[in-house]
Design a protein around this nucleic acid. Structure first.
Lengths: 178, 178
DNA sequence: ACAAATAATTGACTTTTTCAACGGTACGTG
DNA sequence: CACGTACCGTTGAAAAAGTCAATTATTTGT
Protein backbone atom coordinates (compact mmCIF):
# COMPACT_ATOMS: atom_id res chain seq x y z
CA UNK A 1 0.00 0.00 0.00
CA UNK A 2 1.21 3.53 -0.69
CA UNK A 3 2.67 5.56 2.16
CA UNK A 4 0.18 8.33 1.45
CA UNK A 5 -2.43 6.47 3.42
CA UNK A 6 -0.48 6.89 6.59
CA UNK A 7 -0.35 10.65 6.21
CA UNK A 8 -4.10 10.98 5.82
CA UNK A 9 -5.61 12.30 8.98
CA UNK A 10 -8.93 11.07 10.28
CA UNK A 11 -10.29 14.57 10.69
CA UNK A 12 -9.59 15.69 7.15
CA UNK A 13 -12.63 14.09 5.62
CA UNK A 14 -14.84 15.60 8.28
CA UNK A 15 -13.43 19.04 7.61
CA UNK A 16 -13.92 18.74 3.90
CA UNK A 17 -17.54 17.85 4.47
CA UNK A 18 -18.03 20.79 6.81
CA UNK A 19 -19.75 24.02 5.90
CA UNK A 20 -16.60 25.33 4.31
CA UNK A 21 -16.71 22.54 1.78
CA UNK A 22 -19.43 24.48 0.00
CA UNK A 23 -17.92 27.89 0.54
CA UNK A 24 -16.70 29.23 -2.76
CA UNK A 25 -14.44 31.80 -1.12
CA UNK A 26 -12.66 29.07 0.79
CA UNK A 27 -12.42 26.71 -2.18
CA UNK A 28 -11.05 29.51 -4.28
CA UNK A 29 -8.49 30.43 -1.63
CA UNK A 30 -7.32 26.87 -1.17
CA UNK A 31 -7.18 26.07 -4.86
CA UNK A 32 -5.30 29.30 -5.41
CA UNK A 33 -2.81 28.51 -2.64
CA UNK A 34 -2.06 25.10 -4.12
CA UNK A 35 -1.76 26.26 -7.70
CA UNK A 36 0.29 29.29 -6.76
CA UNK A 37 2.75 27.14 -4.82
CA UNK A 38 3.06 24.71 -7.71
CA UNK A 39 3.48 27.52 -10.21
CA UNK A 40 6.10 29.28 -8.13
CA UNK A 41 8.03 26.07 -7.72
CA UNK A 42 8.00 25.45 -11.45
CA UNK A 43 8.87 29.03 -12.35
CA UNK A 44 11.73 29.19 -9.85
CA UNK A 45 13.93 27.35 -12.33
CA UNK A 46 13.64 30.42 -14.56
CA UNK A 47 14.18 32.87 -11.75
CA UNK A 48 10.53 33.91 -11.82
CA UNK A 49 7.53 33.81 -9.56
CA UNK A 50 3.91 33.97 -10.55
CA UNK A 51 3.96 37.74 -10.18
CA UNK A 52 7.01 38.42 -12.28
CA UNK A 53 5.87 35.80 -14.76
CA UNK A 54 2.60 37.66 -15.19
CA UNK A 55 4.33 40.97 -15.78
CA UNK A 56 6.72 39.37 -18.23
CA UNK A 57 3.85 37.67 -20.01
CA UNK A 58 1.97 40.91 -20.53
CA UNK A 59 5.08 42.74 -21.62
CA UNK A 60 5.99 39.96 -24.04
CA UNK A 61 2.49 39.83 -25.42
CA UNK A 62 2.78 43.05 -27.37
CA UNK A 63 -0.10 44.67 -25.56
CA UNK A 64 2.27 47.44 -24.44
CA UNK A 65 0.57 47.97 -21.10
CA UNK A 66 1.31 50.89 -18.81
CA UNK A 67 2.24 50.18 -15.23
CA UNK A 68 -1.12 51.42 -14.05
CA UNK A 69 -2.96 49.08 -16.37
CA UNK A 70 -0.81 46.29 -15.02
CA UNK A 71 -1.62 47.27 -11.46
CA UNK A 72 -5.32 47.18 -12.07
CA UNK A 73 -5.17 44.00 -14.12
CA UNK A 74 -3.08 42.12 -11.57
CA UNK A 75 -4.91 43.71 -8.65
CA UNK A 76 -1.72 45.09 -7.16
CA UNK A 77 -0.81 48.44 -5.74
CA UNK A 78 1.07 50.59 -8.30
CA UNK A 79 4.03 50.70 -5.94
CA UNK A 80 4.37 46.94 -6.14
CA UNK A 81 4.50 47.13 -9.91
CA UNK A 82 7.49 49.43 -9.57
CA UNK A 83 9.46 46.80 -7.68
CA UNK A 84 8.36 44.05 -10.04
CA UNK A 85 9.33 46.05 -13.12
CA UNK A 86 12.59 47.10 -11.50
CA UNK A 87 13.55 43.48 -11.04
CA UNK A 88 12.71 42.45 -14.57
CA UNK A 89 14.32 45.52 -16.07
CA UNK A 90 17.52 44.95 -14.12
CA UNK A 91 17.66 41.51 -15.69
CA UNK A 92 17.14 43.11 -19.11
CA UNK A 93 14.00 41.12 -19.73
CA UNK A 94 11.73 44.12 -20.19
CA UNK A 95 12.12 47.83 -20.84
CA UNK A 96 10.32 50.94 -19.67
CA UNK A 97 9.45 53.25 -22.55
CA UNK A 98 7.75 56.52 -21.88
CA UNK A 99 4.45 56.45 -23.67
CA UNK A 100 4.67 59.00 -26.50
CA UNK A 101 0.96 59.64 -26.13
CA UNK A 102 1.31 60.39 -22.40
CA UNK A 103 4.76 61.13 -21.14
CA UNK A 104 3.75 60.44 -17.55
CA UNK A 105 3.18 56.79 -18.32
CA UNK A 106 5.64 53.99 -18.91
CA UNK A 107 4.83 51.40 -21.49
CA UNK A 108 6.38 48.00 -20.89
CA UNK A 109 7.90 45.97 -23.68
CA UNK A 110 9.85 42.76 -23.45
CA UNK A 111 13.34 42.48 -24.83
CA UNK A 112 14.36 39.61 -27.07
CA UNK A 113 15.82 37.89 -24.04
CA UNK A 114 12.58 38.52 -22.20
CA UNK A 115 10.47 36.95 -24.89
CA UNK A 116 12.82 34.00 -25.07
CA UNK A 117 12.69 33.45 -21.32
CA UNK A 118 8.95 33.84 -21.31
CA UNK A 119 8.57 31.21 -24.01
CA UNK A 120 10.49 28.76 -21.85
CA UNK A 121 8.71 29.73 -18.67
CA UNK A 122 5.35 29.40 -20.36
CA UNK A 123 6.14 25.79 -21.14
CA UNK A 124 6.73 25.14 -17.45
CA UNK A 125 3.59 27.01 -16.49
CA UNK A 126 1.48 25.10 -18.96
CA UNK A 127 2.92 21.81 -17.80
CA UNK A 128 2.05 22.63 -14.21
CA UNK A 129 -1.45 23.64 -15.10
CA UNK A 130 -2.07 20.49 -17.09
CA UNK A 131 -0.52 18.41 -14.37
CA UNK A 132 -2.79 19.78 -11.69
CA UNK A 133 -5.79 19.35 -13.94
CA UNK A 134 -4.87 15.86 -15.02
CA UNK A 135 -8.02 14.44 -13.45
CA UNK A 136 -10.20 16.80 -15.44
CA UNK A 137 -11.34 16.43 -19.01
CA UNK A 138 -10.38 19.18 -21.47
CA UNK A 139 -14.02 20.23 -21.66
CA UNK A 140 -14.21 20.60 -17.90
CA UNK A 141 -10.93 22.45 -17.99
CA UNK A 142 -12.35 24.98 -20.40
CA UNK A 143 -15.59 25.24 -18.49
CA UNK A 144 -13.64 26.02 -15.32
CA UNK A 145 -11.66 28.72 -17.11
CA UNK A 146 -14.86 30.24 -18.45
CA UNK A 147 -16.49 30.33 -15.03
CA UNK A 148 -13.37 31.74 -13.40
CA UNK A 149 -13.26 34.48 -16.02
CA UNK A 150 -16.74 35.45 -14.94
CA UNK A 151 -15.54 35.81 -11.37
CA UNK A 152 -12.25 37.44 -12.26
CA UNK A 153 -13.81 40.03 -14.59
CA UNK A 154 -17.25 40.72 -13.17
CA UNK A 155 -18.04 43.69 -15.35
CA UNK A 156 -16.90 42.18 -18.59
CA UNK A 157 -20.05 40.23 -19.34
CA UNK A 158 -22.17 43.36 -19.49
CA UNK A 159 -19.78 45.21 -21.76
CA UNK A 160 -21.81 44.59 -24.90
CA UNK A 161 -25.09 45.11 -23.14
CA UNK A 162 -26.86 46.14 -26.32
CA UNK A 163 -27.88 42.60 -26.97
CA UNK A 164 -28.19 41.73 -23.30
CA UNK A 165 -26.45 38.48 -24.09
CA UNK A 166 -23.19 37.24 -22.78
CA UNK A 167 -20.84 35.95 -25.38
CA UNK A 168 -18.88 33.80 -23.00
CA UNK A 169 -18.36 30.12 -23.55
CA UNK A 170 -16.78 27.80 -26.01
CA UNK A 171 -16.48 30.17 -28.92
CA UNK A 172 -14.27 32.54 -26.96
CA UNK A 173 -12.31 30.05 -25.00
CA UNK A 174 -11.52 27.47 -27.63
CA UNK A 175 -8.59 29.60 -28.63
CA UNK A 176 -6.56 28.95 -25.50
CA UNK A 177 -4.66 25.90 -24.50
CA UNK A 178 -6.03 23.84 -27.29
CA UNK B 1 -15.95 41.43 -33.13
CA UNK B 2 -17.36 43.37 -30.19
CA UNK B 3 -16.77 47.10 -30.44
CA UNK B 4 -14.81 48.31 -27.46
CA UNK B 5 -16.50 50.85 -25.27
CA UNK B 6 -15.24 54.34 -24.68
CA UNK B 7 -15.53 54.24 -20.90
CA UNK B 8 -13.13 51.35 -20.61
CA UNK B 9 -9.41 51.73 -20.80
CA UNK B 10 -8.10 50.79 -24.21
CA UNK B 11 -5.52 48.43 -22.82
CA UNK B 12 -7.78 46.44 -20.55
CA UNK B 13 -9.43 44.40 -23.25
CA UNK B 14 -6.09 43.69 -24.83
CA UNK B 15 -4.72 42.48 -21.51
CA UNK B 16 -7.68 40.24 -20.88
CA UNK B 17 -7.22 38.71 -24.28
CA UNK B 18 -3.52 38.18 -23.70
CA UNK B 19 -1.89 34.89 -22.83
CA UNK B 20 -2.81 35.35 -19.19
CA UNK B 21 -6.49 35.29 -20.09
CA UNK B 22 -6.17 31.54 -20.47
CA UNK B 23 -3.87 31.04 -17.52
CA UNK B 24 -5.74 29.26 -14.79
CA UNK B 25 -3.26 30.29 -12.12
CA UNK B 26 -3.82 33.93 -12.96
CA UNK B 27 -7.59 33.61 -13.21
CA UNK B 28 -7.66 31.82 -9.90
CA UNK B 29 -5.50 34.48 -8.27
CA UNK B 30 -7.57 37.35 -9.57
CA UNK B 31 -10.91 35.74 -8.78
CA UNK B 32 -9.61 34.92 -5.32
CA UNK B 33 -8.44 38.49 -4.75
CA UNK B 34 -11.84 39.88 -5.67
CA UNK B 35 -13.87 37.39 -3.66
CA UNK B 36 -11.58 37.66 -0.67
CA UNK B 37 -11.89 41.43 -0.64
CA UNK B 38 -15.66 41.23 -0.89
CA UNK B 39 -15.85 38.58 1.82
CA UNK B 40 -13.60 40.51 4.17
CA UNK B 41 -15.66 43.64 3.68
CA UNK B 42 -18.86 41.78 4.47
CA UNK B 43 -17.41 39.93 7.46
CA UNK B 44 -15.91 43.09 8.96
CA UNK B 45 -19.31 43.99 10.37
CA UNK B 46 -19.00 40.91 12.57
CA UNK B 47 -15.41 41.62 13.51
CA UNK B 48 -14.18 38.77 11.33
CA UNK B 49 -12.05 38.23 8.27
CA UNK B 50 -12.11 35.30 5.91
CA UNK B 51 -9.42 33.59 7.98
CA UNK B 52 -11.09 33.92 11.36
CA UNK B 53 -14.43 33.13 9.78
CA UNK B 54 -13.03 29.86 8.47
CA UNK B 55 -11.63 28.89 11.84
CA UNK B 56 -14.89 29.78 13.54
CA UNK B 57 -16.84 27.82 10.94
CA UNK B 58 -14.83 24.67 11.51
CA UNK B 59 -15.01 25.02 15.27
CA UNK B 60 -18.75 25.61 15.15
CA UNK B 61 -19.25 22.67 12.86
CA UNK B 62 -18.69 20.06 15.50
CA UNK B 63 -15.81 18.46 13.67
CA UNK B 64 -13.59 19.19 16.69
CA UNK B 65 -10.48 19.79 14.63
CA UNK B 66 -7.01 20.09 16.12
CA UNK B 67 -4.96 23.13 15.30
CA UNK B 68 -2.71 21.11 13.09
CA UNK B 69 -5.63 19.78 11.11
CA UNK B 70 -6.79 23.35 10.72
CA UNK B 71 -3.37 24.43 9.54
CA UNK B 72 -3.26 21.80 6.86
CA UNK B 73 -6.85 22.33 5.82
CA UNK B 74 -6.54 26.09 5.54
CA UNK B 75 -3.02 25.83 4.12
CA UNK B 76 -1.57 28.01 6.84
CA UNK B 77 1.50 27.70 8.99
CA UNK B 78 0.66 26.27 12.42
CA UNK B 79 1.98 29.45 14.00
CA UNK B 80 -0.65 31.46 12.20
CA UNK B 81 -3.36 29.24 13.62
CA UNK B 82 -2.11 30.15 17.08
CA UNK B 83 -2.72 33.84 16.47
CA UNK B 84 -6.07 33.16 14.85
CA UNK B 85 -7.24 30.96 17.70
CA UNK B 86 -5.90 33.42 20.26
CA UNK B 87 -8.06 36.14 18.81
CA UNK B 88 -11.22 34.07 18.70
CA UNK B 89 -10.62 32.63 22.15
CA UNK B 90 -10.08 36.07 23.65
CA UNK B 91 -13.48 37.02 22.31
CA UNK B 92 -14.91 33.87 23.87
CA UNK B 93 -16.12 32.56 20.53
CA UNK B 94 -14.16 29.32 20.66
CA UNK B 95 -12.32 27.24 23.25
CA UNK B 96 -9.15 25.21 23.27
CA UNK B 97 -9.63 21.80 24.83
CA UNK B 98 -6.73 19.44 25.18
CA UNK B 99 -7.54 16.35 23.18
CA UNK B 100 -8.01 13.51 25.72
CA UNK B 101 -6.70 11.08 23.12
CA UNK B 102 -3.51 13.11 22.62
CA UNK B 103 -2.64 15.64 25.26
CA UNK B 104 -0.28 17.47 22.91
CA UNK B 105 -3.14 18.51 20.68
CA UNK B 106 -5.80 21.13 21.19
CA UNK B 107 -9.27 20.47 19.95
CA UNK B 108 -11.28 23.53 19.01
CA UNK B 109 -14.93 23.90 19.89
CA UNK B 110 -17.16 26.92 19.49
CA UNK B 111 -18.97 28.46 22.41
CA UNK B 112 -22.66 29.27 22.24
CA UNK B 113 -21.74 32.86 21.45
CA UNK B 114 -19.38 31.58 18.77
CA UNK B 115 -22.07 29.51 17.11
CA UNK B 116 -24.49 32.42 17.27
CA UNK B 117 -22.00 34.80 15.69
CA UNK B 118 -21.12 32.25 13.06
CA UNK B 119 -24.76 31.84 12.11
CA UNK B 120 -25.04 35.57 11.51
CA UNK B 121 -21.70 35.79 9.72
CA UNK B 122 -22.62 32.88 7.51
CA UNK B 123 -25.63 34.81 6.28
CA UNK B 124 -23.37 37.65 5.22
CA UNK B 125 -20.92 35.26 3.60
CA UNK B 126 -23.65 33.51 1.67
CA UNK B 127 -25.11 36.81 0.54
CA UNK B 128 -21.74 37.92 -0.77
CA UNK B 129 -21.16 34.68 -2.59
CA UNK B 130 -24.55 34.80 -4.24
CA UNK B 131 -24.06 38.45 -5.09
CA UNK B 132 -20.78 37.84 -6.87
CA UNK B 133 -22.25 34.90 -8.71
CA UNK B 134 -25.42 36.69 -9.69
CA UNK B 135 -24.62 36.37 -13.37
CA UNK B 136 -24.28 32.62 -13.06
CA UNK B 137 -27.01 30.04 -13.04
CA UNK B 138 -27.32 27.79 -9.97
CA UNK B 139 -26.20 24.83 -12.08
CA UNK B 140 -23.09 26.67 -13.18
CA UNK B 141 -22.52 27.72 -9.59
CA UNK B 142 -22.52 24.12 -8.46
CA UNK B 143 -20.37 23.04 -11.38
CA UNK B 144 -17.81 25.66 -10.44
CA UNK B 145 -17.79 24.48 -6.85
CA UNK B 146 -17.31 20.88 -7.98
CA UNK B 147 -14.40 21.79 -10.24
CA UNK B 148 -12.80 23.94 -7.58
CA UNK B 149 -13.06 21.08 -5.11
CA UNK B 150 -11.05 18.99 -7.55
CA UNK B 151 -8.32 21.62 -7.52
CA UNK B 152 -8.51 22.32 -3.81
CA UNK B 153 -8.34 18.64 -2.82
CA UNK B 154 -6.25 16.94 -5.47
CA UNK B 155 -5.81 13.64 -3.73
CA UNK B 156 -9.38 13.20 -2.74
CA UNK B 157 -10.70 11.88 -6.03
CA UNK B 158 -8.11 9.13 -6.10
CA UNK B 159 -8.91 7.96 -2.60
CA UNK B 160 -11.15 5.12 -3.80
CA UNK B 161 -8.81 4.21 -6.59
CA UNK B 162 -9.95 0.60 -6.60
CA UNK B 163 -12.78 1.38 -8.96
CA UNK B 164 -10.95 4.16 -10.73
CA UNK B 165 -14.15 6.15 -10.63
CA UNK B 166 -14.63 9.53 -9.10
CA UNK B 167 -17.76 10.08 -7.11
CA UNK B 168 -17.82 13.82 -7.51
CA UNK B 169 -20.72 15.70 -8.97
CA UNK B 170 -24.27 16.64 -8.30
CA UNK B 171 -25.04 13.96 -5.76
CA UNK B 172 -22.37 15.20 -3.44
CA UNK B 173 -22.77 18.89 -3.96
CA UNK B 174 -26.54 19.23 -3.85
CA UNK B 175 -26.34 19.32 -0.10
CA UNK B 176 -24.68 22.70 0.11
CA UNK B 177 -26.14 26.13 -0.42
CA UNK B 178 -29.51 24.83 -1.43
C1' DA C 1 -2.90 80.49 -17.81
C1' DC C 2 -4.37 78.04 -14.17
C1' DA C 3 -6.57 74.46 -11.25
C1' DA C 4 -7.58 69.79 -10.87
C1' DA C 5 -6.48 65.14 -12.01
C1' DT C 6 -3.34 61.37 -13.14
C1' DA C 7 1.22 58.18 -13.71
C1' DA C 8 5.10 56.71 -11.48
C1' DT C 9 7.88 56.71 -7.57
C1' DT C 10 9.39 56.89 -2.78
C1' DG C 11 9.13 56.02 2.08
C1' DA C 12 6.88 54.72 6.29
C1' DC C 13 4.10 51.57 8.23
C1' DT C 14 1.32 47.32 9.09
C1' DT C 15 0.22 42.69 8.00
C1' DT C 16 1.32 38.20 6.35
C1' DT C 17 4.54 34.56 5.46
C1' DT C 18 8.29 31.68 6.48
C1' DC C 19 11.44 29.34 9.37
C1' DA C 20 14.01 27.67 13.22
C1' DA C 21 13.90 26.74 17.74
C1' DC C 22 11.78 24.94 22.36
C1' DG C 23 8.95 22.32 25.97
C1' DG C 24 5.59 18.90 26.46
C1' DT C 25 3.70 14.59 24.83
C1' DA C 26 3.17 10.17 22.20
C1' DC C 27 5.07 5.97 20.30
C1' DG C 28 8.05 2.22 18.75
C1' DT C 29 12.04 -0.61 19.73
C1' DG C 30 15.18 -2.82 22.50
C1' DC D 1 10.69 0.03 31.55
C1' DA D 2 14.03 3.36 29.16
C1' DC D 3 15.22 5.57 25.34
C1' DG D 4 15.38 7.83 20.93
C1' DT D 5 12.43 9.68 17.52
C1' DA D 6 8.60 12.07 15.91
C1' DC D 7 4.99 15.08 16.72
C1' DC D 8 1.82 19.32 18.64
C1' DG D 9 1.48 23.88 19.95
C1' DT D 10 3.96 27.97 20.86
C1' DT D 11 7.34 31.66 20.50
C1' DG D 12 10.20 34.88 18.18
C1' DA D 13 12.82 36.71 14.43
C1' DA D 14 13.41 37.77 9.72
C1' DA D 15 11.67 38.25 4.97
C1' DA D 16 8.01 39.26 1.90
C1' DA D 17 3.82 41.41 0.75
C1' DG D 18 0.29 44.72 1.28
C1' DT D 19 -1.42 49.59 2.49
C1' DC D 20 -1.23 54.37 2.36
C1' DA D 21 0.22 59.23 2.10
C1' DA D 22 3.28 62.50 -0.11
C1' DT D 23 6.08 64.14 -4.27
C1' DT D 24 7.27 65.16 -9.05
C1' DA D 25 6.16 65.43 -13.77
C1' DT D 26 2.67 65.61 -16.97
C1' DT D 27 -1.98 65.93 -18.85
C1' DT D 28 -6.65 67.75 -19.11
C1' DG D 29 -10.40 70.92 -18.64
C1' DT D 30 -11.90 75.65 -18.05
Amino acid sequence: MPPSEKTRLPGQDALRDSVLGGDLVFLLARANALMLAAANAALAEHGLKARSYSVLALAADGARPTQRELAEFLRLDPSQIVALVDGLEKRQLIERRTDPADRRANVLVATDAGRALFARAQESARAVELGLLATVTPEEHERLADLLRLLAFPDWAVSDSRTGQRSRGTARSARHLG
